[in-house]
Amino acid sequence: MSRSIALLICLVGGLTMLVSPFLPMATGWANDVTDWFNILAAMAFVLGGGSLLKVQLMRLSARGPGWGYSAVTLLAFAVTLWVGLGKVGVVADPSAPMVPWSGKPDDEGSAFWWIYLYVMTPITSTLFAVLAFYVASAAFRAFRAKNLEATLLLATAFVILLGRTFAGVVLTGWLPDWASGLRLENLAVTIMDVFNTAGNRAIIIGIALGVASTGIRLLLGLDRSYLGGDA
């Protein structure tokens, strides 16, 4: 019974979104359903936070190796929640200065803004920056021009990298005007405009077809994996 109702809810939710572009009267329904979806997505963040709390508390109570890091995570989580939900340091919005809670939690000067600017942003951007080393290291070890396909990939990467930097302009700047198309910066533009456009377009069409077919399978109840094995 629970499973049948879940399948029905899935079908109704999906069909509402599908028919809304074709039926003007369904636009309002689609807006409502989109709002509900957003509310549930927001609830999912709360669920994620709750799950993190549960796991870290279990690790902390077990006192296994590295339990101190769990304590740090919990502390960081609690402080962020406290300053964010409590709007610590937020000044009132100019449109309603009499309402102290009217300001946004991430307004400049608030504690939540401070955490975002001085804790979250530096760590996440450095984590992504560090990937430059790993990408370069992996490329050095894995890239071998063994066949035509690998050579094409390697050569394109080099042309794009050089063509978008000053080094590329200097390296092929001596080419005469009639051969300017072979200058690295122009070659990079051609690759992006023609070959990359064609390849990406086919990939996008392929993904869209995959999304559509998977969506139909989900709505028709042919794919029920999300309900769990014992559903």
């Binding site: 957003n38 740090v72 995570t73 960081a76 989580f77 609690a78 962020t80 939690p105």
Partner: peptide, 23 residues
Amino acid sequence: FTESIVIGVSAGYWMVVAFWETL
């Protein structure tokens, strides 16, 4: 230590954003 901080902060950050922006 930094990794533990960012895990906690990220979870809290998105919960706060979800609360004030949507809920």
